[in-house]
């Protein structure tokens, strides 16, 4: 326990020092990793803790992204209002769609999340007057105080750390333990008096909300939103990050996000066959490290899986 606190503190310190290295490329890379780490953490609340396989997690990321773009630019709201409002919109959407999704289980649940995810993409793609459609939402009115890579780096670091802390508290909570119980044995959970669907709906809404935060950050980071973000491949990407890093541990998805984005940027410099490389990496992980990088490291240290 003390070890993990020291480790986290060290990591945060290291992250805080990144801009001092003076490389703009590094600042961009680490900012993007932060955002996707939060996205993957939110996803893992569903997959790792709830055992819920969602193929539509990109929906929440992109709703958060578009909502913040529209609120900031089209409606001209001040950032401090627009940012939380975008998150609230995402939370509402996730609760509404989640209500239908958790009525189904297993593969039917997954298919429904995929369908809703693609529906969000279709709306973003077709509603050109609001979202910019195919061209994307260009020229987001980013507030001045965030209009520098370094300042945004620190802003996103703070937001991501705050969200990660809240998620950490939640997975250790009475609710978090109950969520794991519904994953472990849905039937037994019903028979200790737990309303399993409601537990899953809360997880779905929370996961969507935090994905919305990540999406809103991504908008400010890019000064634009692209419709590809809502495509199902983004949902697959966040799933790969989680599995690569390890769904059985809290930090696993963070490691997965960091490794995947770093490799993506590095490998694309040498070859256009990044997707194939990613496929090979994923295969290797599934065969040789079925509990992901975090699970692998943990076992080598002699730890156990919760």
């Amino acid at each position: 326990m003390n070890k993990s606190i020291t480790g986290t503190a060290l990591l945060v310190l290291l992250l805080a020092l990144v801009p001092l290295a003076g490389s703009r490329y590094l600042i961009y890379l680490v900012t993007e990793i932060q955002i996707f780490a939060l996205f993957a953490l939110s996803f893992n609340l569903l997959l790792g803790y709830g055992g819920l396989i969602s193929f539509g997690h990109a929906a929440w990321f992109s709703i958060g992204a578009y909502a913040s773009a529209i609120l900031l630019t089209t409606l001209g709201w001040p950032f401090l209002l627009a940012f939380p409002a975008a998150v609230a919109v995402t939370a509402l959407a996730a609760a509404l769609i989640g209500y239908f999704c958790v009525k189904l289980t297993e593969i039917y649940f997954s298919m429904l999340t995929l369908a809703f995810g693609q529906l969000v993409w279709a709306i973003a793609f077709k509603w050109v007057s609001v979202t910019g459609g195919d061209t994307g939402f260009i020229g987001v009115a980013v507030p001045e105080f965030l209009d520098s890579p370094v300042r945004f780096f620190y802003f996103s670091l703070c937001v991501v750390l705050l969200c990660a802390t809240v998620l950490w508290v939640i997975v250790r909570s009475a609710y978090g333990m109950t969520l794991v119980a519904t994953r472990e044995n849905r039937n037994r959970a019903e028979f200790i008096g737990v309303n399993v669907r409601r537990v899953q709906l809360v997880a779905f809404t929370l996961a969507g909300t935090f994905a919305g935060v990540a999406g809103a950050l991504f908008t400010v980071f890019n000064h634009s939103v692209f419709v590809e973000t809502a495509w199902w491949s983004t949902s697959a990407e966040v799933m790969i990050m989680s599995i690569l890093g390890g769904v059985g541990s809290f930090v696993g998805p963070v490691i997965g996000a960091a490794v995947l984005i770093f490799l993506d940027r590095t490998v694309t410099e040498y070859t256009q066959y990044w997707p194939s490389v990613m496929g090979v990496i994923l295969l290797a992980v599934l065969f040789f490290m079925p509990t992901g990088i975090a699970g692998f490291l943990n076992r080598r240290r002699g730890g156990t899986r919760r």
Binding site: V169, I170, R172, S173, A174, Y175, G176, M177, T178, V180, A181, A189, I192, G193, V194, N195, R198, V199, V202
Partner: peptide, 24 residues
């Protein structure tokens, strides 16, 4: 934990998001 989570459910605390489970 198998028993603890059942206690939590019985006491109606299954939805406490910020209450640490370990000590309950």
């Amino acid at each position: 934990e198998n028993v603890q989570v059942a206690m939590i459910a019985h006491e109606g605390m299954s939805f406490r998001l910020f209450r640490k489970a370990e000590a309950l």
